[in-house]
Write a protein that binds this DNA or RNA. Structure first.
Lengths: 187, 187
DNA sequence: CGGCTAACGCTAAAAATTTGCGTTAAGGTG
DNA sequence: CACCTTAACGCAAATTTTTAGCGTTAGCCG
């Protein structure tokens, strides 16, 4: 059979989760700059060559781990109304992404070129917003444009986290959301 | 004398410019992933240890080169009116940053932790916008809030470049600018 | 001009990465 | 269920990259 196959279960999967777990553990106690592939290999009981063959290099591995961590485990909380749904989600999003691990994940995701890690992880955000939009519509609310929400609310938050040019206060995030909601109402 | 000194002229400066030039040349013809410190050292006629001692590692060197490239050489063009000034500047900004070298510079700048490379380079953008604002005021126009311009216009552009989730067309950039100008007029 | 020392070059040692080859085990087939 | 194919792994040698010690060069200051 000429089809490309990717092993999903058994040893291969066990190694992947073991390596991922090791990386997450290491990121808790040490800086990203002092983590090396041989270290990860030893702590996870895998030979370095396996890691190199499977992920290519350290930055790709870190990106892979970061994307896996950002993958949502549940839908955003339902607070009963679109405005509060959006605010709750954005505040939590800003909180997570501006934390030390959040900034680290962002950097890792943006530092990889293979596998479109950045695209996949911003898709998570898009999907969450889409969920909120559909939820609003099913309540009879007017809904909102997801792309516009990203431009007006998400993009500034990410920008300030990445460039560190501004404190990301709760009030500021709230103002972004309310500014967006007003724009929706006006349109 | 106990004071820390940094050599500015002579050999040290010559080496810096030589290494920078070599890096810029290499980035034209090859991918960032295949550039190594020993390569740069050989092509620029410097020993690797000098590069390691001076810049620490490859990512710091690349960030240093990127910041130097992004440092503006002139003020943004004066088109005679605030709206067209802003549009001209943003279109050129989007063009430069979304190009291959632009994306590479962004990635390099965000991938370094020393020296606040990211902060310094977003300061360039801030300064340019501030120039446009002052120019508008001196013409008798109402001006605009620079931080708001960054949130509404610059941040979305950078976001879409980094995450690759959307085509960055001229029309789209123009719509961001006009949306911002309307917001200014309304406020 | 002469002293001081930051910054460089050279070299050897250490660490990381790549590569070849044999082995293990996942997943499909008869 | 036993067998076959081959993706994925482990091991170890070869290669490359990075670090560190030490002597030398050349800015900068008095």
């Amino acid at each position: 059979m000429a089809r490309e196959m990717v092993r999903q279960g058994g040893r291969s999967a066990r190694i992947q989760s073991e390596v991922h777990r090791t990386v997450r553990d290491m990121l808790k106690t040490m800086d990203r700059g002092e983590i090396t592939v041989p270290m990860i290999a030893e702590k996870s009981g895998v030979t370095p060559s396996t890691i190199y063959r499977r992920w290519g290099d350290l930055s790709e591995l870190l990106a892979d781990v970061a994307v896996a961590r950002m993958r949502p485990v549940a839908d955003p909380e339902d607070t009963g109304a679109m405005g509060s749904d959006l605010e709750t989600f954005i505040l939590q999003y800003a909180e997570e992404m501006s934390s030390k691990v959040g900034r680290s994940m962002l950097a890792d995701v943006l530092g990889s070129m293979e596998g479109n890690a950045a695209g996949r992880c911003c898709q998570f955000t898009y999907d969450h917003l889409e969920t909120l939009r559909e939820r609003a519509l099913s309540r009879g609310e007017s809904g909102f444009d997801v792309s516009e929400a990203i431009d007006v609310v998400v993009a500034p938050i990410i920008y300030h986290i990445l460039f560190g040019d501004r404190e990301l206060t709760t009030d500021y995030c709230r103002s972004l959301v309310s500014s967006f909601l007003e724009k929706c109402a006006g349109a």
